[in-house]
């Protein structure tokens, strides 16, 4: 399998703080890659490299290469950043639907990308709500505010919203951390379904979750990538002492 994303010697500084240290890593296509590590180790920061979300934070410095399909996304023109983000969907830690209707939440990405064809938008909304396993629950109240949904439903709505613009990569930053176990189970099933079509990178601090959903796992510690490999290998036979300590719950 080829690498969808590749980072080469990436360093990131927030002002004086060195948040990512010399990270080189390849993320295989059409698979689920989990990023684990104690909180504050730079998982979210690393994830946000891929859709240039860190650009929004002032005084951020980035060196090294981030290749997406072989192209360094930090060398593209500023006008192409929107197109990059269209290709790289993101689901955030806390569900963050817009204060709009359920329908308009999913349609938003299409509308801002200039799509006006009504029947296409309707089709896409229905399709992605199906994909996000939410359709049956919301099909009769598409005009209702997204805020009327439960937290788990909101998060699946956010997944549908990300899917609607047909990205090839989906980034998920602890997508289930704010949810109850049943909702979490639904999201995990969903990730399993989606991986045939998408390259998924998921940040999680829940070890069991990483073990359940991912094919590959990277372990971060204090801004460095300590170890990366097949999830089974990382969980059963890690090659680094820090990894083993973390996995066995001795710290973190």
């Amino acid at each position: 399998m080829s690498n969808k994303i590749e980072t080469i010697d990436v360093n990131l500084h927030y002002g004086d703080f060195h948040a990512l240290k010399d990270i080189s890593l390849g993320i295989p296509e059409n698979s689920v890659t989990a990023l684990i590590g104690p909180s504050g180790c730079g998982k979210s920061t690393y994830l946000r490299l891929f859709n240039r979300m860190n650009d929004l934070i002032p005084e951020t410095r980035i060196t090294g290469k981030v290749l997406l399909d072989g192209e360094n996304i930090y060398k593209i023109k500023a006008t192409k950043i929107d197109a990059l983000r269209r290709n790289v969907g993101m689901v955030f830690q806390k569900p963050n639907p817009f204060p709009k209707s359920i329908f308009e939440n999913v349609a938003y990405g299409l509308r801002v990308n200039g799509i006006t064809d009504k029947s296409f938008i309707e089709g896409q909304v229905e399709k992605t709500l199906h994909q996000a396993a939410l359709w049956d629950e919301v099909k009769d109240k598409l005009k209702k505010s997204a805020f009327e949904l439960s937290g788990g439903q909101q998060q699946r709505l956010c997944i549908a919203r990300a899917l609607a613009i047909e990205p090839s990569i989906i980034l998920m930053d602890e997508p289930a951390s704010a949810l109850d176990p049943i909702s979490t189970g639904k999201i995990e099933d969903l990730i399993f379904e989606l991986k045939s079509e998408f390259t998924i990178v998921i940040v999680t601090h829940n070890m069991q979750q990483a073990g359940r959903v991912s094919d590959y796992t990277g372990f971060f510690y204090l801004g460095s990538l300590i170890e990366f490999g097949k999830t089974r290998k990382i969980f059963t036979n890690p090659s680094k002492q820090e990894t083993e300590n973390y996995i066995s719950g001795r710290f973190g």
Partner: peptide
């Protein structure tokens, strides 16, 4: 909320 802005930008909105 920042999350709202980021959600929009992450969907490719300018």
């Amino acid at each position: 909320p920042r999350a709202m802005k980021e959600a929009s930008l992450a969907l490719g909105a300018s």
